[in-house]
Design a binder for these strands. Structure first.
Lengths: 341, 341
DNA sequence: ATGAAAGCGCTAACAA
DNA sequence: TTGTTAGCGCTTTCAT
């Protein structure tokens, strides 16, 4: 037998009231008034006994667990930022966060978690092109609130927090364009596993549109992430057109691409920041300060996206009456200037 | 009223047995034999009804929650690695992870969490010099299993997972020393907020001892992290002694220090990897691949440390009989070679 | 080997 | 306004 737990009964006894009064004081149950002195007595007893409600017992009654599950790729540092936001926002609601890395846990198993733990909601950090029809189906069959971060962009049923990538590109371009005579060149790095998706399209098209608006001849380059030769050739092509007085600026979609560019520039003897500017439209690698010279990037506010997801979850929890509303929440990347552009 | 839950009663009814049999099948309760056919029937009913035990109800009976809490700095990418290990190992035990960032939650509040949620254990990711006497006291008063990662090194009561920093330095030195005629120079970066601690001492002393063993004149340098001048002077001092045929190797305690070194080397026109080698005795920044040239580092296996912490927790849970045992578990850093050394 | 029954601590409907 | 009571779903004696 373990140590005796302090229960609401003990509190009630000490305060000279019944357990329901204790419960009412704790939960502020509407429709039940509690006299001021009684309330004081209860509060005092709680203090003195160091009473804490048993979340499991409470959950048993209410059918809730006061927990939300966070699901994402445990190897991606971005997920930690998301978690930070989730944790922070949940704390405000008195909720806790149950971690569900997607290494060994498939999304479908989350349904079981829901059944076992009575999770009150799920926040999933997905890749930008992610969408799972099966999951959408399961979800619509259950009353479990769900919010995706970065995923399900084209699935209007699902609430998701999305980044306005078009805008991030425009802001980046406006930033580099503050210097006169720059020639922005877009570099879209690609990876086998990541197919073209709306985010890449948005960025590319924002670049093209911006060039049109600013009467600049666009140059859009697709390069595979491992393709060192490709980057090298791109850099060399810049030298050829050196006749132009314009300062070339490489704007790349992923900050990991900057590593390749720096590497080749280093080999070719180009000085980034003077011969050539570099700017990244995202900051996935979080290497802004680690690059030399430091990188100018558009930082994506993952922490805030985590917080927003929590608020969106609670909106679903509270208004379970079906309202017509936009299920997509958009956030903006923020410029972090560095020495590279 | 929400959707009716499938309970063990439903399963029992469908299988034509009583609830206790269902429970016995589920938990393999010792001392209770269940006939083969009955067992089959129960299993089949569970399948068909898609029954899942209610963790809260179970927890209520057993006094456990099948959850462990993970506590750490949500802004440090290292913590995510730890979480990955924790999550992974917990899954094997059928446990879940409750996240407790230390942003808004003080360690003392964890006690409340324990009372509320009946947490079965706590894993805390601490800084290397961390130790909180008050917490040690609270802990000894409660039966709550606790394991610290990187903290409480000098607190023999507490179980902690620690890194053998001496060894990481020796391995790094042996690695650079494979080339003939290198001159290893130790650089200890310092930060206001981080005082000298056992880990720094271990590294420094391992360096000095190694130099003695290898009959090399040691050079141990303390530099403040922001002290660009200091790094610059250090690099310049290397040129002066250029008369020596030895290739200087800077071994630094933190991989963040490499950024400063690269930056100054870049300014002074030194080529890292040829004029000068650089090696880091840890990999806190996780910038191995992002540096140009790529960095040689000793990587600390935080994922595994997380897993080990979970195993240590379960050892405490299972053997609650007090055994005499070593409370400190040591792990080794692993060499990741790069181009810098 | 199996079933009946007693709670775990809480909340909410109801009775006073 | 306050106290009584009936479960929530499970595990675990204790009888059978």
């Amino acid at each position: 037998m373990s140590i005796k737990r302090v229960t609401s009964f003990d509190v009630a006894k000490k305060a000279g009231v019944s357990r329901s009064v204790v419960s009412a004081v704790l939960n502020g149950t509407p429709g039940i008034g509690v006299g001021a002195e009684k309330r004081e007595a209860v509060l005092k007893a709680i203090q003195e006994l160091n009473y804490q409600v048993d979340a499991q017992a409470r959950g048993m009654k209410t059918g809730k667990s006061y927990c939300i599950a966070a699901f994402g790729d445990m190897r991606s540092p971005l997920f930690l930022q998301v978690l930070e936001g989730i944790q922070h926002a949940c704390a405000e609601y008195g909720y806790h966060v149950l971690l569900s890395g997607n290494q060994n846990l498939a999304l479908s198993q989350l349904t079981d978690l829901y059944l076992q733990r009575r999770i009150d909601g799920i926040i999933s950090h997905d890749s930008v092109n992610y969408s799972d029809d099966g999951w959408v189906g399961e979800l619509s069959a259950s009353p479990l609130p769900f919010v995706s971060i970065e995923g399900y962009a084209e699935e209007s049923e699902i609430v998701s927090i999305l980044v306005d990538y078009s805008r991030s590109v425009r802001e980046a371009l406006d930033y580099v364009n503050r210097r006169s005579d720059v020639l922005p060149i877009y570099v879209q790095f690609q990876e086998e596993s990541v197919k073209d998706n709306w985010a890449e399209r948005d960025r590319r098209e924002a670049y093209l549109q911006w060039c049109t608006d600013n009467k600049i001849q666009p140059s859009c380059n697709l390069v595979h992430l491992d393709d060192e030769q490709g980057v090298k050739q791109l850099l060399q092509s810049l030298t050829k057109s050196e006749g132009s007085t314009k300062l070339p600026v490489l704007l790349c979609n992923w900050s990991i691409g900057a590593v390749s560019i720096y590497r080749q520039a280093h080999r070719l003897g180009f000085h980034i920041g003077t011969d050539l500017l570099v700017m990244c439209a995202d900051h996935t690698l979080r290497n802004q300060m680690h690059m030399i010279p430091s990188l100018s990037v558009m930082d994506i506010p993952y922490v805030r996206m985590g917080e927003m997801a929590v608020h969106a979850i609670f909106e679903q929890i509270q208004h379970d009456d079906v309202e017509i509303k936009a299920n997509k929440l958009w956030v903006n990347a923020q410029l972090i200037p560095g020495e590279s552009a």
